[in-house]
Design a protein around this nucleic acid. Structure first.
Lengths: 138, 138
DNA sequence: CTGCATCCTCAAAGATACTG
DNA sequence: CAGTATCTTTGAGGATGCAG
């Protein structure tokens, strides 16, 4: 009923210097996080690790279509950003356990908000695309 | 105080078929939205259009470093997804007005949630990166 | 003023094979 | 088991020129 005027105080509503300077959006924390979440595997991996911890090959088997290389690279990226922890158990053969860090777990909330929006409005987006593609000369 | 157990019912907490099938994440609405928001210009443009409507060259002047090509492409993408509207005023020379659609405005909420998280935890991420890069053999 | 067409560069992503 | 190394492909993004 009252969604004609959503007044959410946020960094997004803060005033911006116009023109927006290059450095303002070249190294923007928001874009930074969105680019990580926007890659092909990070979110899926974080969803799995949100349920329990996984070993490397266990993740590999759990995600159809991911290559070893991309799994490694994505895990390294998430680990570098402090979202995922990597624990080596010195056994023979070695086993490596991946988990969400506490920082990683705090990310699941905002991510859920966005994910729910995406699923809820997916039909709208699909419809808009069909309309647009129908009118475009292709 | 009570953030040790965040129980948010969401699509992210729903059970997943393991292994996650290819089609499940190849055309996933969530990834889809994240990839759009994760590109270099979409969010910035939506933030500007969230404040008021803009004409093409006005946007071009307002965002330092964006090329005409990328501005056009990004606007087309947002328009195709139904997030931004494009209105041509048949004057001489023609002026084109860009606005957020109502769908686009509903997106600002979830986006803000994520943006606020990003800004809040930016120091944590930066610290994690420094730690990681220091220990990595480069 | 508002674009589209063309050409170019570069990094992300994928395929495949090999290793401690 | 848990990766690394190498090669190839794809697409995002940028520079420039032309057009309605």
């Amino acid at each position: 009923m009252s969604d004609t005027h959503t007044d959410v105080p946020s960094v997004l509503t803060a005033p911006l210097p116009i023109p927006v300077p290059l450095e303002e959006h070249r190294a923007c924390p928001v874009t930074d996080v969105l680019r990580r979440a926007g890659d092909r595997w990070s979110v899926l991996i974080m969803i799995l690790l949100g349920k329990r911890s996984y070993r490397f090959n266990e993740l590999h088997r759990s995600i159809e279509g991911i290559s070893q290389r991309m799994l490694t690279r994505t895990l390294r990226g998430l680990e570098r950003d402090g979202l995922v922890s990597r624990t080596v158990h010195p056994s023979v053969p070695p086993t490596v356990e991946y988990d969400l860090t506490s920082l990683g777990r705090t990310f699941l909330g905002p991510l859920s908000t966005l994910a729910d929006w995406a699923v809820l409005h997916d039909p709208d987006i699909a419809a808009a695309r069909e309309r647009h593609d129908a009118h475009s000369p292709h």
